[in-house]
Design a protein around this nucleic acid. Structure first.
Lengths: 114, 114
DNA sequence: CTGTTGTTTCGACATACGTCTATCTTGACT
DNA sequence: AGTCAAGATAGACGTATGTCGAAACAACAG
């Protein structure tokens, strides 16, 4: 836990200013894939809207899906480098990695006015 | 053709400043899903990097997948409101809808510094 | 040390998705 | 009309993904 997997090295080249090569596209698509589910998007929204961090025990009741399903989606967000977590006693707390969020957004944004 | 499907009405509320409700999350996830494929991301990159518009005949040779597959992915991008197209004679030309791109990006971006 | 609660992992299942080939549509040019 | 080329559509196939219940794991209480 508390380990980021994806490099996100060149995730900041906006797709409107230069054509992505296959590797960049694969990496970027993986990032967007993590966001491409309603449950995960709400999860990230809840975590990112919190001032600091959120306990899983406060998250799960807000959804209609089972605990294991929430856990699975949190893992996807973690592996995408969008959130990180830490266990403290019985509970596990999640917080957003805003730099990563910003970087993914800029993939789409920067060149959008060109 | 030349028809946009998705409303993208409230796609501008950044997920970091307010918790998305189920409907907003569903709509946002659908948008990200359109970007969650390497071929589509490269397609959008090619179309958005062009000054004006791009002919499909210039796009297809840049990929290793079949013509119908390219056509399918372009349709997904179209239905997501990210590109639009027009037939002129034998050829079909695509251009990006930058406003839509920007709006989706801002879902992720705005609150990312909070 | 045993029981309880919170969270993750495992295995299974149904559905969604990306890809292909074959076929259809549209327009241009004889 | 007849033919040809560019794209789109239809249907089929394999794989990936979201979901669940059951079980494992972690931390604490008695």
């Amino acid at each position: 836990m508390s380990k980021q997997q994806l490099a996100s090295s060149d995730c900041c080249t906006p797709i409107s200013s230069a054509v992505l090569d296959v590797e960049q596209a694969t990496e970027g698509a993986a990032a967007f894939k993590a966001l491409a589910d309603p449950v995960r998007l709400r999860l990230l929204s809840i975590i990112a809207s919190a001032g600091d961090e959120v306990c899983v025990c406060d998250i799960t009741p807000q959804f209609d899906v089972s605990g294991p399903t929430i856990s699975h989606h949190l893992k996807v967000l973690r592996e995408a480098g969008l959130v990180d977590c830490e266990r403290r006693g019985t509970w596990v707390y999640y917080w957003p990695i805003r730099d990563r969020m910003q970087r993914i957004a800029s993939l789409l944004a920067t060149g959008a006015s060109a």
